[in-house]
Design a binder for these strands. Sequence first.
DNA 1: CGTTTTTGACCGGCGC
DNA 2: GCGCCGGTCAAAAACG
Length: 180
Amino acid sequence: MESSSLKTIAEFPSPKLKEDITCHFEGSQLLSLQRSSANLWTWGGVNEGIASNTMMRNEDEDDDHHHNKNLGISPMKMKKIKARRKLREPRFCFKTMSDVDVLDDGYKWRKYGQKVVKNTQHPRSYYRCTQDNCRVKKRVERLADDPRMVITTYEGRHVHSPSHDDDDSQASSQLSNFFW
DNA sequence: CGTTTTTGACCGGCGC
DNA sequence: GCGCCGGTCAAAAACG
C-alpha cells in the first residue's frame, strides 16, 4: 500500500457493514473537492465494484420501461424489480466535520426521503442527482456521538460533468475519472 | 407556476 | 409466518 496521509476509520455507524468494509483510499482527486480537512474512505462492491470497474451499465433497459405506468403494475413495483438485481454500484463515503449536512460538490441534488435509523438519533437524508440519465444517489447522515460530524455516502457514478450547465458538456467524460 | 422539500405509507430483506 | 428495519415513492406543501 502506498503511504497515504489518510487514516483508517475503524468505527462505523452501520452495524451491518461490520467487517464488510473494504477501506479503500483513493485520496487525491477526492480531496480536491474538499475544502475542509476530512477523513474519507471508500468501499466498493468488494468483489465486483472495483475489480470490474469497466463494466457497462446494462440497466438502461429498465429505464425505458418506466414509460409504461398504466400497465396495471404499480410503478413502485417496477423499482422493486430493478432493486432486485442487487446494487452493485460503488459507494464512496466521506466523513467530514462540518456544520452543514449537505456539502456542495458541484452537483445538483434533490432530496427524496428522510428516515430515522435505529442506532442513530439523527435522521438520515436521501438525495438524488437531478440530471436525467444520472441516477446517482447520495446519503447524508449525522453521527450521534459527534453532532458536528457528518457522513456523506455517494452511490453510483455521474454521467455528466459536475456543476456544468454550459453547452460543451459531453457524455464522454466518464472515462476520464475512475469513480468521480 | 415550476421545482424542490416534506412527510407518511409502503415494500423487500432479514431475523426470530 | 410475522415483525423489525432500512430505503424509496408519491402527494401535498413549501419555496423561488
